[in-house]
Design a protein around this nucleic acid. Structure first.
Lengths: 338, 338
DNA sequence: TTGAAAGCGGTACCAT
DNA sequence: ATGGTACCGCTTTCAA
């Protein structure tokens, strides 16, 4: 069933059917009704490929993501997909893992499918890495990055100031009397590097000397984080507070502390469901995904409709206090003890 | 840049370029090289829409999912997407939420994009619900359901025997001396109903009378589950063990128990990251997503290549024992105490 | 308001 | 081995 069939059955030309289909103004009420009747009767749907060929778009946006099974990325994908759909776009999802070659390959596949734009989520852009694939993608379609930064023409970034977030956390911990702050991280994405920079900046702010042994890289798993933290505790590497680049690792640290029957403030990152599920509930940094994602999609639709939008948009984060650390309370406690 | 440009620049016809592009056998080595040179030089990529129009496929599969931000569905989507890609398909992701009208609308949108098939993940198929949209979708393309059951022509289901899983859990708890078993659930999806049936069957097996007050529906959140469980504890509604339709709720129950300074076996469902993050780590039912998803994709590719595949494939689950319940140990303890 | 016809960019069949 | 060409199904311009 194609547009010719519909035209024939309604006794009009395909041009008229097309007009009806696309809400064209110049169709008489009678003709429109007649055509719509046939369309409904035959349950006709225009062929999206033919449409795409003519219009050079199928209104699809590629979402490139390292791993949707990660709770943080999953939430980002969910939000982005929802916003896109509300704007009449479909989402072509593509998970790359952390391998750069895969990222390149899959970005190519996405472009090959002629997506209108690409949204990059949590892709591991280490500093000084080869971003040529992103550069060349941006020459073809708008590229929007959620929570990452690549400063290239045609690449638009919406991100949260995570460096400041960690920096502030260090200060808060310092003010509550904790200077030996463990920091756990996993990957050196742009975001990952920023957080570490914030950690170091925070220490400097507070006049705390940086200790290599407290900046610890671990595999991305609760168990690994717990094991590493337990190792530190056993080795007597003292720390009086812990932070992590993401909730998962913070939960691991928390487990190790509890097992060692010790307690210390712990601050996670991402304010994910894990923070709420953890016992005690994890204080965590909300990096504003709920705002970041709609903003990113707005940018994208703006770009596609030819509007000019800022290349970089930075939001500030928010510390969500739960059981593992209360800034004011801890501070207060300390002052009372003095 | 299109196939005509490439043909012209390489001094051949578009037919030959097409052959080169599609690995056709009948091209001389020399010609092929020449054409490939031009293609590389111009960084030419064939237009996917034109290709789609001619072949009537763009090798895209629609994934319909209630909510990717849910850890369980996220993992399913991740697995399915990966398998699809390995089979040369792209995934068009579409999250519907729980609203039936949305499901219908979005399934229509997906079909409108002319996907080759549809994978349904965790869609809430309550029993006796209107599945006409699935039925009509199945008339157009193969429909594969992961962890759900709709018995209609053209609809293929890959699922885990969750009823038996819960039934067995009840028996294990009974054998460890617990007969007052709380069961928390949220939605009445097919899966949700099966689990409840398993709960009741398990009770019957063990000769435990069913108590309405122990079968509790809660909103899907840790806090809600914790609050409800705490309420039961306060009200003196005794229970000596808890189970839940998913880890999130089990974690909530666990929190309430801990806060009330009580302890009891708890068994979750889905064996998600939450189970490993929880303290104490949650014993949970693995419903075999790692097997279910590849199996579903295999079915799908089989169907698309005209093979005949079973309409229904059921896997058995696996209880992953962690800290909140050890079947044998608890049983042993009890026997020793006797 | 309506229709005819020219693309859009491929694939594949049929000659040569 | 290569080329010519019909065809896929729609949008859009131009004429009527």
């Amino acid at each position: 069933m194609n547009i010719y069939d519909i035209a024939q059955r309604s006794g009009v030309s395909i041009a008229t059917v097309s007009r009806v289909l696309n809400g064209g103004r110049n169709v008489s009420r009678k003709t429109r009704e007649k055509v719509l009747d046939v369309i409904r009767r035959e349950d006709y749907r225009p062929n999206a490929f033919a449409r795409g060929l003519g219009l050079n778009t199928m209104r699809m946006i590629g979402i490139l993501c390292t791993d949707v099974s990660d709770t943080f990325y999953a939430r980002a994908v969910s939000l982005v997909e929802g916003c896109l759909r509300r704007n009449g776009f479909d989402a072509l999802l593509c998970c790359t893992g952390n391998d750069l070659e895969n990222k390149k390959k899959y970005l190519g596949l996405l472009l090959g499918k002629r997506v209108d734009a690409v949204v990059l989520i949590g892709s591991a852009f280490k500093e000084n890495v080869d971003n040529s694939h992103i550069e060349s993608a941006a020459r073809q379609v708008p590229v929007v990055i959620v929570n990452g930064l690549v400063e290239l023409p045609g690449v638009y970034c919406v991100l949260c100031d995570e460096r400041s977030a960690v920096r502030r956390n260090v200060r808060l911990l310092h003010e509550s009397g904790r200077d030996d702050i463990l920091y756990l991280y996993d990957t050196l994405t742009y975001s990952g590097c920023e957080k570490i920079a914030g950690y170091k900046a925070g220490l400097k702010d507070c006049g705390i000397p940086f200790r290599e042994s407290l900046l610890v890289r671990v595999e991305k798993s609760v168990e690994a984080a717990a094991a590493k933290t337990a190792g530190l505790l056993n080795a007597g590497t003292g720390f009086s507070a812990a932070m992590a680049s993401e909730d998962l690792l913070a939960v691991g640290a928390l487990k190790a502390l509890r097992r060692a029957d010790r307690t210390a403030p712990v601050i996670g990152f991402n304010n994910s469901v894990l923070a709420r599920c953890s016992s005690p509930a994890l204080t965590s940094v909300d990096n504003m995904l709920d705002t970041l994602c709609p903003t990113a999609v707005n940018m994208l639709t703006g770009l596609l409709s030819g509007k000019s939008v800022p290349q970089k948009l930075v939001l500030s984060s928010k510390l969500v206090e739960r059981e593992t650390f209360h800034a004011n309370q801890d501070k207060q406690n300390r002052e009372e003890n003095q």
